[in-house]
Design a protein around this nucleic acid. Sequence first.
DNA 1: ATAGTACCTG
DNA 2: CAGGTACTAT
Length: 166
Amino acid sequence: MGSWSKRQQVRDGFHDCVVGLQTPGGGSSNMLKTYFSDVKFNRCITSQLIKWFSNFREFYYIQMEKYARQAINDGVTSTEELSITRDCELYRALNMHYNKANDFEVPERFLEVAQITLREFFNAIIAGKDVDPSWKKAIYKVICKLDSEVPEIFKSPNCLQELLHE
DNA sequence: ATAGTACCTG
DNA sequence: CAGGTACTAT
C-alpha cells in the first residue's frame, strides 16, 4: 500500500490542529499531500489518506457527543459548566487517541475549538435537535470553519525527531 | 463517472 | 483504523 514512513509522525500532530477538516471545496486533499513530501500518491494511497482523516474526524465527534450526553445525564444544565481542560476526561480520551506518546504539545486553540464543539453538541441535544437524523450536519458546518493551519514543521519528513529535540 | 463523506461494522 | 454501502457534489 506504499511506504507511509511519515504516517506515525504526522498523524498525531495533525489532528491536534485539524479536527474538522472538510475536503470538498477546500481542496484540502492536495493540501494534505504537501505534508507527505516523501510519498508518491496514486488513487489508492490518496483515498487512504482521505479515509484516515475521515476516521479521525469521526472519532472526535463521537467523543464529543458521548461527553455531551454524559454531562446532561450528570445534571449539567448550562454550557457555562462545560469547559475543556488538559486534565478532563474528554481531553484525555482525545489525547490518548491522537497523541498517545505525547510527542506534541496540544495547542491552546485545540482546547478552545473542542470546548466550542462540546457546547454545540450540548445545546443541540438539550434543544432536542437530535431527533433530526441529520442534526450533526449543522455542527459540522460550524466547527470545520474553525480549523487551524497545520504547523509547517509537519511538512518535514523528520518532523517527529525535530520536535523531540526542541 | 468520480471523489469525497456519513454511517455502520469488525 | 480498514471495508463496505449509500448518498452528495462535481
